[in-house]
Structures are given as C-alpha cells and as structure tokens.
Write a protein that binds this DNA or RNA. Structure first.
Length: 436
RNA sequence: GGAGAAAUGGCAGAGUGGUCGAAUGCGGCGGUCUUGAAAACCGUUGAUCUGUUACCACGGAUCCGGGGGUUCGAAUCCCUCUUUCUCCGCCA
C-alpha cells in the first residue's frame, strides 16, 4: 500500500479564542470552502466583548451579594437582629441590578451561539481549492477494469433478471427508495455486513450496535442539526431522528466525556441501517441502487489524540482501500476540494468504485478527519496524565463500507452469461459462488 | 398506562434554609517506610466561565439529574420535565 502524507492539524479548534486571536487566518481559510465568514466573525467578536463585559460586572455584583448574605447569616447567629436587617436592606438594589444584567446576558449568549455555529470547520492545508466534483484530486487508484460484453446489463436490470432486489415491492410497503432484498440478494447483504465487521474487528475495531434513533442533542453534537434538519427523518411525536449514518450515535457515545490520553485512539465499528430523506436530490443518474432512502452501512469511528489524528486518518484510508481491493473492484481515492467538502470536515477522502455497465464512478466511502470541530460541540475532551487541563479530542469516521453501490458494482462488473460471480472473499459468508 | 420512592463528586454514601464545592469511606495521584511490592501512615484529588499574569500562581462567578420559582441566602422549600427503582396493568 502506497505511503500517504501524514498531516498535522493546523490549529487547535474553531472556538471563540481562535477567532479572537486569528481572525484573519480563519477568514482566509474558510475562503477555501467558498465561505464568506467576515460578517459572522465580526458579529461574534462584538457579541463576545459585550458578553464578557456584562459577565464580569454580574460576577462582581454577585460576589458582593454573596458576601452580604454570609454576613447576615453570622449576624443572625449572634442575635444582632437590627444589624442583620440593615444589611438586608442593602441587598435589594443589588439584587435588582443583578436581575437586569442577567436578563441581558441570556439573549446575548443565544445570539452568540447561533452565530458561531454558522461557521463551518476550517479545511486542512492540503485541501485543494475548487468548487465542485471536478476539482477533486485523485490521490491514487487500483484494481483492474472489468471486461464485460456490450450486452451487459445495468444493475437495475440484473436485480430483476435474478429476482434479488425488488423496488416495486418496497414501494408497496413503504415508498420509493426502500427496496426489498430477496433470496440471494438478502443473503448478499448479510454477507457483506458480516464481512466488513469481521475485517474491522481484525483491524482492532471494537464493535458496537447503537440505537438507530437519536435525540436532538446527538444530532447537534455531530453537526447534522441545526443545518441539515430536512435531511433526516424526524419522529416528531417523540422528537427523535432516524440516523443518517452510524457516525451520529457512535460519536455521541463520547459526548460530555473526559477521556484519559492513554485511552486514545478509540476505535469503534458499527453496522446500522441508514435513513436519508434526500429531499430534492432525485434525478436520472440516481436510478436503482445509486441512491436510496434506507440503506446499510458499516462505519468506523475514531476518537484520536490531536497530535496523531492524521495518522489515524491514514490508517482508516488504508483499511477502506483494503476492503475495496479485496472485493476485486476498480477504485480510486479522491481528496475532496474545499467546495465539495462537508460543513464539518477538515479533510475528506472519498472512495469511488467503477460501475461497468453504467460506465461511471460511484462513491462508496467517505473518510474524514473532523479535528476538534465535532468534539467542540460534543464536549469530547481528554486529559494528559498528570495534567490539569482538558483538551478537545479529534474525531474521525469513514464508511467501511456503504452497501448499495458496492452491490451495484459487484453485480455489473461480475456478470457473465452464467450469472453473477460472487467475490471470493464473500463466498464463505454467502455460501454460494454465483447468483443465477 | 396507573400508584409510590428516588436522583449528591470516579464510585459508595452523609447532609432538610446560613463560612457546603459539599462529611466519611473506597478508588486515583504524590510521599514516608521497604532490596522491591503489599500493608500502614501522611498529604492531595472535579468541571465551566472570567480577572490580574508570559507561565506558574492567585482572585471572582457558576455547577448537588435538566429547566423555572420562593428567599438577603437553596444540595436543602415550591413548580415542571427527564431518568431510575418498587408494585399493578400490558407486551416480544
């Protein structure tokens, strides 16, 4: 496996502190993501100044208040009722002043918070400049392009021919984008999930099986809320969200947690179904398995020390590459450009496999380092042994792998006149070598 | 779903209006003793915000499930939400 560059994080985090000290730097960096940050940052900084002024004033008044209250306590004990009453009279004005200041503070805090969470994560220095998919950088590729006949079928025809995935039945039960896997199709799903989990376990990942509905706090922690509210299915009666990826519950395990440095890196792997509304993103190129509302995915999630989170990222990329390669699929790895990256990510590698009958690349994995962006929202921190201060951890995750497009590629690339050849590594899991 | 009880620091567990950030025990960390370890003994032990400060440090505010209220003063009283336990009902 080719050696990767190992990067270092640019700056600790996107916090108010950073904005105070490196405003210009942040503005410049966010331009890579085509994000105009200046107005927001100015607003944040001025709100922050006001906030601190008010806070300091309130604190000192509160200190006076506490002091007088204690005095009253002592006086009462000593039976000096009159003096106590005199002291009590003094508190009324103070109390009113504190009340007024506190009333001011609430809205300021709220506004500050809503402003600061509008800022996306800073892209890493290796992120290429660009606006869309065409500007992504191919890091490397592998696997052999399959030779299939001119009469080869796209997967949406193959699944009908062999009766392994039924979209119409899914429409009857639920709606478009909720397929029913049948017979060898169902078994192939199960085989892939188990295979991916087993490979993860071999690579030292700890398996977890989380809830597939999460609450608002969890949605916020990993950054799906508030901006991507419409992308998740929302069970409004209980205010739960169906997970769009296992990243959400698994990363949120570490919400409000202070870890010891020697516990890092934490390596978890989880299989969950994933639910995405994909509102407004349907079109001609999303036929068949290319885009679904419900699909299966195995996800790897790591909590890493900031000093070596990019080593973690490299390991994850290598792990995913191993999976794709073992299935015999032609693939390429892209480093996403600023314009194509997610709101939360600092550096993202996408994996694409070649789909022979569609003659196009399909994204099957996205591996990202979020540095301290999610950790800051999650309050996921760690402490060095003997150290008093806590620091934000780094979070990373990647698909290893998402199933539907892998299935699409396997079906299309491995088809011949006898049926579809199951990749060798999966045969122990499926129990059959051919879908026919 | 109904009725009752409870929620305190890493854990266990005191504390029912005043110097309580919180007794005590365990655990953790540091030390004494020991060839080393254990035991014993001594000391120490959270988070967030903030001020002075280069750092160490020192000072202030907030935090006893979450939110709100009463009071000069709340872990302690009141309201509300959540969670847990017990009993009943229902159920895979």
């Amino acid at each position: 496996m080719a050696c990767f560059f190992i990067f270092k994080p640019l700056l600790p985090m996107l916090t108010i502190n950073l904005l105070r000290e490196k405003k210009e730097f942040v503005i410049e960096r966010l331009k890579i993501k085509n994000f105009e940050a200046e107005d927001i940052i100015e607003k944040v900084l001025s709100l922050d100044t006001v906030r601190r002024e008010v806070q300091v004033k309130t604190d000192s008044l509160q200190a006076d208040m506490n002091r007088i209250s204690k005095e009253i306590g002592t006086l009462m004990k000593d039976g000096k009722k009159e003096e106590a009453e005199n002291a009590r009279q003094k508190t009324f004005a103070l109390k009113e002043e504190i009340r007024q200041l506190t009333e001011k503070l609430g809205p300021i805090d709220n506004e500050l918070r809503t402003e600061i969470i509008k800022l996306p994560n800073l892209p890493h220095e290796s992120v290429p400049v660009g606006h869309g998919a065409d500007d992504n950088e191919v890091v490397r590729s592998g696997g052999l392009m399959p030779e299939i006949s001119e009469s080869a079928l796209p997967h949406w025809d193959l699944i009908k021919k062999y009766d392994i995935i039924d979209f119409e039945l899914g429409i009857k039960l639920t709606g478009a984008g909720f397929p029913v896997y049948k017979g060898k199709g169902a078994k192939l799903q199960r085989a892939l999930i188990t295979y991916f989990l087993d490979m993860g376990e071999k690579a030292g990942y700890n398996e977890v099986y989380p809830p597939i509905m999460v609450n608002e706090d969890s949605g916020f922690g990993t950054g799906q809320l508030p901006d991507k509210e419409g992308q998740m299915y929302h069970a409004t009666l209980d205010n739960f969200y169906l997970v769009p990826t296992a990243e959400v519950p698994v990363t949120n395990i570490y919400r409000d947690v202070i870890l010891n440095a020697d516990q890092l890196p934490i390596k978890n792997i989880a299989y969950t179904p994933c639910f995405r509304r994909e509102a407004g993103s349907w079109g001609a190129h999303v036929r068949g398995l290319n885009r679904l509302h419900q699909f299966d995915k195995v996800e790897i999630v790591r909590i890493a020390h900031p000093d070596n989170s990019y080593e973690s990222l490299e390991e994850m990329v290598n792990h995913v590459e191993g999976l794709v390669a073992s299935l015999g699929l032609p693939y390429r790895i892209l480093r996403l450009c600023g314009g194509d990256m997610s709101f939360t990510s600092a550096l993202t590698y996408d994996f694409e496999v070649w789909s022979a009958a569609q003659k196009r690349w399909l994204e099957v994995s996205s591996v990202s380092n979020f540095e301290s962006f999610q950790a800051n929202r999650l309050k996921c921190r760690f402490k060095e042994k003997g150290d008093k201060q806590t620091r934000l951890a780094h979070t990373l995750n990647g698909s290893a792998l998402a199933l539907p497009r892998i299935v699409a590629a396997i079906l299309e690339n491995n088809q011949n006149e006898n049926g579809i050849k199951v990749p060798e590594v999966l045969v122990p899991y499926t129990g059959f070598e051919t879908i026919n």
